[in-house]
Design a protein around this nucleic acid. Structure first.
Lengths: 340, 340
DNA sequence: ACTTGGCACTCGGCAGCAAGGAGTGCCAGT
DNA sequence: ACTGGCACTCCTTGCTGCCGAGTGCCAAGT
């Protein structure tokens, strides 16, 4: 009973703070939300919430502000994902209509997400791991360098320059290409390794060193480069809520410049396609302690192939953000699924 | 004589302002630079410079600040490119050593440039126009969609998904691929069009619609997608000189997010490989009126293939920036040249 | 056992004011 | 043509006092 009202107070504080960006006091709370109690009672509740570490005051005699933990409770127990407005849905539809390329889909989606959330959006390219090999091509680049191109059924193309040390004839390249293709065509990338492992034995001794290098590179390509690419959009939105976090946008920008960081952000929430919210210090990245990250997986068919999400200030509008993120993920999934 | 001293005063003002970021007055100027005249004389010169529109004062009774035009004169007549320090040269060497991929070269170079200039760096991918075709591959993606992959001798790979409307057999794809390759292999991209124009006539009537679509896409790929890709680094450096331009970093970030804007910035200075500096309002991009852009072309062999450069505040250290930009361009050129 | 009104207290923010100082423009002298 | 002197402007800084929002606590009411 009492506990319920306390949570209602917390919810009210979060909502007010998110919309006004100013510490919220007991009087204003009592006025704007119909909690049915007086400011004095709210003060008592606030004191209790502060003891629990859910809210804090920037200075004595200032209003209260939610802490990271406060947002956590809000997200977990007090809020529900807010569905998108009709206008937004329509916007998504028109925005993502008529895509061709995988690149195109990724780029449009991430821009769209940045636009509707007014935050920084990111999207990870579909994992190579779960996709299958469509084609492999070897192209001599003169001397001892060759280009390995791997085309996955997701439409993604991986390329890699290999230095074999010794020259390879076009004939050899062709034969090798054919052997590889006939072994791995149509199988999943994860299953490539065992298929090509013994391939080398079918080549004469003098060709083996070069062949070995190529195969090694191929294996690296399929196992290492899983999901390395992340696309970003909306960094200019950082400027809006500029002075919010510790004075400067710099650490955030720095963090977002690092592919590795982005991959960790997206990768860690690898619990399938469920919506993940990491708030403030829950992010282990130094520069992002005053941001929240909302991510979700998107699927091709019924298999989750990668993640997308947004980065924003801890005092973001969680219900709307979560709604937008999951909506875009669904649309992206639908497009990827339809395109095959 | 007098004119000379005035310019010396302008130079001193620019240098001091760039290093202190504060309006500079006549007294400080007389002290820090040995101009051999008294503050009063300098004041007269300043008044003259102000009449010419080269400097301005933010408020009455504040020091002077260079205007865009002032910087222009400084860059054109008063400064010379400052060569890099030994340490910096060494840094470049080690940083760019051991690159394999074209992507790798681009990424490392742009990061390096951002790091040593402490500004935002950008680099354009080598133009496809001037390079030659190394290989072309057509891969069926099922149904009526095929993937066109074009590999240039610069190591760059262009891919494009084509919807032919009608299914194409692997046999047809193979024949078409072979025909195209034998026609265009080794020739420059700009010369591809005439070579493949009449290719369609060698196919039977029933295959022509599909073939026509593919060839049309190929032509688009070689003529339209010249130099579309630009890579960016160091945006977090924007935060350093944050409050400099009109209060917010936002317009700058917004401008830099647009590929088109970047391409214009790099593309407009298409006067060969000469160092170009565009100052403040000389940039026609709305968001960048309070930034300066320094660009230069880089070459593969003896042919300029693309541009690179930096974006920073108008009150940047022009001599050093220009030195760094052209040094990195030379190194990049050398690497590209060596790799073939 | 809660809730409520009252009350004293804290503290940040803001207007107003004065002093200080940097810098300018101009003039008269060399 | 340069210089020193001088009056003037106006930004900056620090100080003051005041106001108000907001709190915590207590005693009284339900």
């Amino acid at each position: 009973m009492v506990e319920d009202r306390r949570l209602a107070v917390l919810r009210a504080i979060v909502e007010d703070y998110v919309s006004t960006h100013e510490p919220v006091g007991s009087r204003a709370l009592a006025e704007r939300h119909s909690l049915g109690v007086s400011p004095a009672t709210i003060r008592n509740d606030m004191a209790a919430l502060e003891d629990e570490g859910l809210i804090a005051q920037p200075h004595t005699s200032a209003g209260r502000v939610p802490t990271d933990q406060g947002y956590r409770v809000f997200v977990d127990r007090l809020s529900q994902v807010k569905p998108l407005s009709v206008a937004e849905r329509r916007a998504i539809g028109t925005f993502l209509d008529g895509t061709v390329d995988l690149d195109d889909v990724m780029q449009r989606s991430v821009r769209l997400l940045a636009q509707i959330t007014r935050q920084v959006a990111m999207i990870q390219y579909p994992s190579l791991t779960r996709s299958t090999v469509r084609h492999i091509e070897l192209v001599g680049l003169g001397a001892s360098r060759i280009l390995l191109v791997l085309i996955a059924d997701t439409g993604r193309v991986e390329q890699r320059v290999i230095d074999t040390g010794v020259p390879m004839s076009d004939d050899l390249l062709g034969r090798l290409r054919n052997r590889i293709v006939e072994r791995v065509n149509g199988i999943r990338l994860v299953d490539v390794a065992p298929q090509v492992a013994d391939l080398i034995e079918s080549f004469p001794l003098n060709e083996r060193p070069a062949v070995a290098t190529v195969i090694a590179s191929l294996l690296e390509t399929v196992v290492e480069r899983h999901e390395e690419r992340v696309m970003l959009a909306g960094t200019s939105n950082l400027a809006s809520f500029g002075e919010d976090w510790g004075g400067s946008v710099r650490p955030v920008l720095e963090a977002l410049e690092e592919q590795m960081v982005l991959l960790r952000l997206l990768g860690e929430s690898r619990s399938g396609d469920s919506l993940t919210v990491r708030i403030g210090h829950e992010n282990e990245v130094a520069g992002l302690v005053s941001t929240s990250v909302v991510t979700v997986g998107y699927a091709r068919g019924d298999e989750v192939v990668a993640q997308l999400g947004v980065v924003g200030p801890t005092r973001m509008d969680y219900p709307s953000t979560m709604g937008s993120v999951s909506a875009v993920a669904r649309y992206v999934g639908r497009i990827l699924t339809e395109q095959h």
